[in-house]
Every structure is written in structure tokens, then in C-alpha cells.
Design a protein around this nucleic acid. Structure first.
Lengths: 188, 188
DNA sequence: TTATATACTTACTTATTAGTAAGTAAATAT
DNA sequence: ATATTTACTTACTAATAAGTAAGTATATAA
């Protein structure tokens, strides 16, 4: 699985954004890590916002891949939930990355406005999928919770985003504690 | 309540950090808003990290004030909880600021390392106070929840931090939904 | 074989950044 | 009355930022 230069640039940018935010990396950083010159990055992504859009689109594809994998592999709703939460686990494991949505939400007002619809679509699709899982799981008696499935999905998304951030300050044990509380609230 | 130049600088920096992050504002931005020159800001805070430290310290004082006010005014644990949550409400009302901890956690690895202990102290003191409230409330039968009060406190802190971020993308209704789910989980 | 598209390079511009040095006017202390 | 501290100013530096223009080597297409 060797990446093209273009794919490598996207992967490096994604990493920078989730490590330090959109405003804390430069084309020079990417170029240095890749062993090319500044202008090579501009060749593939003329403006920084083009690169950002590519990162968001990659994340959309990544999430849709998870959805497909879950559809064809997971039998229980807990398995589906855990596959969703694994996205956050993977970020934690990769040097305490925060989730893309959390990182970009903090920087949101500094981003070109035409990026917001893409980010909105990403968050909505995550929330919608999770709400559907929660709703069906409750109907089948596998999960239990009060209130709407959409609100519960929003709570889980925001808790996990916040947990990755809190883990940076208080340590990874805090992340595990939050995650297990969330699951406990659904299954007990 | 007219602020000194120094206090104004701190307030403006706090606002910038919670609006756009630490790496998206400059001394020039502050100076322009204040109607002074760049070097005037450096006079009060020689390095940017000095200004950041002052912002964190202000937040520590602000939280301690809330604790004192709560101690002498709130009779129920729900009142204490709501006073805590009001900190987040106030950020939402101020042009969708995210919480300071959430903003700085995202930028954490770009900050001077000596700032981390101060941030750690702030988060710990918030979590500890909230855990104590939750624990006593559960002992008195006012709240109900599973697991340790510390883990539940961590969940609430991360959920609220995440809720402010999600609200930027999905709208403020989402924030209210998340918050009421959190309260419902404690009181039902 | 020749033309063209791809994937870069070197070299540059313009803007912005944090930070400093030296000067000044006004308030305060001696 | 004089000295000193406070709160700035102007004027600057060195570094870094995004972005562009023009050139080049290689692969591909006509």
C-alpha cells in the first residue's frame, strides 16, 4: 500500500490538523516530511483550503468505509457501536490525535466558509448513522436509554470528541473511563 | 467595571483563543482592537506564552469564583450542577466560544510545555469539584448514576466541551439537546 | 517522431509573525 | 525640584507564511 505523493500530502495534512489544528502547520512542514519542495505541494493543492477539503473528503470516505464494513460484518448493535468508537480509539493511539471534527470545529471561524457544508455533511452522516444504530438497538431491546436517538447520538459524538481532548491533558486512562461510562449508560 | 489595559488584553486574548485557538491570533489583532501599538501588548506580556498563562490563570480564578458563589448560594445539587453548566452556556452565548480547555487541548502540542501544569490544574480542579458534587448528590439521593463520580465528572466535562464544538457545526439546538440528555441521565 | 501532459524544481513576492531597542510623556516617589 | 517608574510610542529585525511564475526532466499520446 504505497501512497502517491498526493495521497501522502493528504495523510500528512490530516495528521497535522488532528495533532495541532489547521492553523499550526504550513506547506513547508508537509514538503519537508515528504522530501519535496514547497511548490510541489502547491502543485497538487494550489490553495491550503484545497488541501483541507481533500482531508475532509478523505474522512468522509473513511467513515463510509466503516459503515459498509459494519453492515457486512457486525451482528450485534454493540459490535456496530464499538466499530464506531474504534475510530476514536485509533486517533488516541496515533499520538493522541483529536478527532477531525473536534479539531476543525475549534478552528471553524478561521476556515473558508465554503468548507462548512462539507464538515456539516460529515458530522450529520456520523450522527445519523449512529442514531439509526441506537434506535434499532433500543427497539430490539439490546440498548436502553431515555430521550431521542438523535440526541443520544449527538451526546456520544460530543463526548468522544471531548474525551480525546481531555485525554491529552489528563491522560489516556480518562479516555477509557469516559468511553466505558458511555457504553454502560446504554447497556445497563 | 472599567478594565485596565492589561485586563483588556487578557480579555481579548481569552476571546481570541476560545473563538479561533491560540495559533490564530496575533499581538497585532489585540493591539488593533485596543487602539494601541503592537509593542504596548509586549510591554504587558513580553512573550505570547506570558499572555496565555494569564488567560489560564484568569480562567482558574473565574472557576474558583463560581465555586465560592455556589457554596454560599446553592441549596440543591441540581443548582450546583446548573451553575457549573452555566459556564458553558455563557461561552455558547458569546458567539459560540468553545471552552478554554477544549481550545487549548486541541493546540496543546504547539504550546510551551510549562503551560501544561497550569492547564492540568484547571481541568483537575473542575473535575474534582464536579465529582464531589455528583458524589454527595448521589449519597443524598438527589442524583442517580452508575460508576465512579470521578468518571461521571470526566464524562460531563468532555461532553460539554464537545457540545460547544458540535454546536458550531450543527447549531445551538444540538447543544441544548446534549445538555438536557446529560441532566436527564443523572436525575431520572 | 513530435507534441503534450505530469510532476516536479528554483527563485521569487508580499504579507504577517513574535519579538526588541530606543525614545517619550505623564504620573509618582523622594 | 528632581529622579524614577509606568505606560506607552516609533522604528526596526529575523523568521515564516501562502502563493506564483517560469523552467525542466520524464512519461505518455498522437
Amino acid at each position: 500500500m504505497t501512497l502517491s505523493t498526493k495521497e501522502s500530502i493528504i495523510a500528512l495534512a490530516e495528521n497535522h490538523i488532528q495533532q495541532n489544528g489547521y492553523n499550526a502547520f504550513s506547506y513547508h512542514d508537509i514538503a519537508r516530511q515528504l522530501g519535496v519542495r514547497n511548490a510541489a505541494v502547491h502543485y497538487h493543492f494550489p490553495k491550503k483550503e484545497d488541501l483541507l477539503m481533500a482531508v475532509v473528503e478523505k474522512s468522509e470516505r473513511h467513515f463510509q468505509n466503516m459503515v459498509e464494513t459494519s453492515r457486512s460484518n457486525d451482528n450485534t448493535y454493540l459490535e456496530k457501536l464499538n466499530r464506531f468508537l474504534k475510530i476514536y480509539d485509533d486517533n488516541l493511539d496515533r499520538q493522541n490525535r483529536v478527532c477531525l471534527v473536534g479539531a476543525l470545529a475549534t478552528d471553524l471561524f478561521t476556515l473558508p466558509t465554503h468548507l462548512r457544508p462539507a464538515l456539516y455533511r460529515l458530522v450529520e452522516s456520523m450522527k445519523d448513522w449512529l442514531a439509526e444504530v441506537l434506535n434499532e438497538a433500543r427497539n430490539k431491546g439490546e440498548f436502553m436509554f431515555d430521550g431521542s436517538a438523535f440526541d443520544r447520538a449527538a451526546l456520544i459524538c460530543s463526548s468522544m470528541a471531548g474525551a480525546l481532548q481531555l485525554a491529552r491533558v489528563l491522560g489516556n486512562k480518562e479516555y477509557e473511563a469516559i468511553k466505558s461510562q458511555l457504553i454502560k449508560d446504554l447497556t445497563k
